[in-house]
Write a protein that binds this DNA or RNA. Structure first.
Lengths: 189, 189
DNA sequence: CCTAATGATGACAGTCGCTGACATCAGAAT
DNA sequence: ATTCTGATGTCAGCGACTGTCATCATTAGG
């Protein structure tokens, strides 16, 4: 038997979610989250780089799903098609079982500006990662950045729809629709 | 004659730019910036909501240039064309005289992750504002958000090119080129 | 000309986010 | 049995940021 309960990080994440939900992000201290798990504030900051990070861990793994999907695409495919394949790969990570949790999580983020700022930063980081992967495939700039950013835009809009009340379609299907809409929009200009 | 030197906020911004440039963002304290202008730390935080804000003030005015340009567009124009008009309006704000200052400023931001995060947040805020203006014009969702976000993507890429070394073309011309590239990309998918 | 309202600032205490340094101690490795 | 490892506790401390009250030159009003 271990000296400490395992999964401290996961328990801290869950405690943070509950506390942020019940009393808000600003009015929840890191020490409070830690105490809820029976550890000290110092331990909290050993698991997470800052207070916002507690809701965004696992993103690295999340990014890898996108990149792995992109790597399966044969070299000749156009950048946007490659990005859309990456998106569908990432979308598969958000299966129907995950939808309720994603809804709650997004509720917390939407209610707290500092968390929105972090989320946008993470999404931008995904775009940077995808752009780098495209450049590694030989896509020149600015096409690589444009395709990657456009892809994350599509993903973000589709995700917002996916967690909307009453929505039941899978994320990848929504993303396809959103891309069609965007293609129509740019085609008009 | 005024009791205090006027333009305290502007002097704080300039002092902050110099200190961030010479010794970095993290290793510059708010008290230090304030002292460089002969005021107290408390006064610094009366002018700026937080330390990062000192480099991002004036954005509200900056956003209005975009929206004002959008408002000049006649109602029947397609969303993307309307957004591109807004972009050209915003681009006119960055005239050639402003380019050296923008280059320095971007250098500081690129060197400091916390500032990058704030910049992305501000750019996202511009997208939200534009999307709202589009909805006010009768553009439905998700077209409004897509057009607005795509527009800011184009603007961001064009801006990055505009401040690149040796670049001399005006921002609006670059933005037009970037949009053409993006249209070509989406047309392939 | 006197007086009161204004408004940017100083002074100060305090909370909280976050870090560095060192000690602790159960279990794994040797 | 001893050493090593690694997650944790403890503690001191800095810096970001806020609430509160006092100050005082300027300005508006009488």
């Amino acid at each position: 038997m271990a000296r400490w309960e395992p999964g401290t990080a996961a328990r801290l994440q869950q405690a943070a979610m509950e506390l942020f939900t019940s009393q808000g992000f600003e009015r929840t201290t890191a020490a409070e989250i830690a105490a809820a798990c029976g550890v000290t504030e110092r331990t909290f900051f050993r698991h997470f780089t800052d207070k916002r990070d507690v809701l965004f861990r696992g993103q690295d793994e999340f990014e890898r799903v996108f990149v792995d999907a992109l790597d399966t695409v044969s070299p000749g495919v156009t950048p946007m098609k490659a990005v859309m394949t990456a998106l569908r790969g990432g979308a598969s990570w958000f299966d129907d079982e995950r939808r309720p949790h994603s809804r709650m999580r997004q509720g917390v983020i939407d209610a707290n500006p500092p968390l929105q700022e972090r989320e946008r930063h993470k999404l931008a980081g995904l775009a940077d990662t995808l752009a780098g992967a495209l450049r590694a495939r030989g896509v020149p700039e600015p096409a690589a950045t444009l395709a990657a950013q456009t892809g994350t835009t599509v993903f973000g809009v589709a995700f917002g729809q996916w967690i909307a009340d009453g929505e039941t379609r899978p994320l990848d299907a929504i993303a396809d629709d959103v891309l069609r809409e965007l293609t129509a929009l740019t085609g008009e200009a």
